[in-house]
């Protein structure tokens, strides 16, 4: 193993890791927004919204994320959507993971005991007030961990954007393999950095979950 080479190139990998982190954070934010909207649509009393929500989930969970990325990045310009690779990566992955988060959030909401809604409605709260003040605070505790699973998958999923040449960890590894012919070292290096990002995030989620349980 060429440790010397690894030490030489690792600053570039750190820079790439920073891009992966940015991708992950932005994708998480967009995913949460899509997930919240998707869950609201799926739980709506309007059948049109429920159909839209269900279609969103089955469409984006039912096709490969890579195809969705390619469609957006390579197919987009054909229909007037011009995005650079990073933007296409965030939007493509965000909408994709949002479909998974829709189900996570919806699951958390319907897992809250129906008696909670009945008690709140009986006291005179509206549907909306019941949702925001009684159901969601309880659902939030239930969904932190499963959302953590979504986020874990999403961070690993950012590797896909290497295919549309965003210079993140996976793409960087491939690029240095081209010039060094050392795939073992390069993939090891990027893998280790992924591991650090994912482990740290996992600890953060666990901490949030513990905090929510105590409160």
């Amino acid at each position: 193993m060429d440790i010397e080479l690894m030490l030489k190139v690792y600053p570039f990998f750190l820079k790439a890791a920073w891009v992966t982190i940015q991708l992950s954070v932005l994708t998480t934010i967009l995913g949460l927004i899509c997930g919240a909207l998707g869950a609201a649509a799926k739980l709506s009393r309007h059948s049109v919204l429920r159909i839209i929500g269900a279609s969103y989930v089955s469409l984006f969970r039912g096709t490969p994320a890579l195809i969705q990325l390619f469609l957006l990045y390579f197919g987009g310009p054909q229909v007037g959507i011009q995005l650079d690779a990073f933007e296409a990566g965030v939007i493509g992955l965000g909408i994709n993971i949002g479909a998974y988060m829709t189900e996570t959030i919806r699951g958390g909401i319907i897992a809250v005991d129906k008696g909670q809604t009945e008690a709140a409605r009986t006291l005179g709260l509206s549907r909306f007030q019941t949702m925001t003040r009684v159901v969601l605070p309880q659902a939030a505790r239930l969904i932190i961990r499963p959302l953590g699973v979504n986020i874990n998958a999403l961070i690993k999923g950012t590797a896909l954007v290497a295919a549309i040449s965003v210079i993140e960890l996976t793409y960087t590894a491939q690029r240095y393999i081209g010039s060094t012919y050392k795939p073992f070292e390069m993939f090891l290096l990027s893998g280790a950095l992924y591991m650090i990002i994912i482990y740290t995030t996992g600890r953060g989620i666990a901490w949030l979950d513990r905090k929510a349980r105590i409160a």
Binding site: D113, Q116, A119
Partner: peptide, 13 residues
């Protein structure tokens, strides 16, 4: 109209 349920339904949070 006040209502009291079999399973209390207090808000646990």
């Amino acid at each position: 109209i006040g209502m009291v349920f079999q399973h209390f339904n207090l808000f646990p949070h």
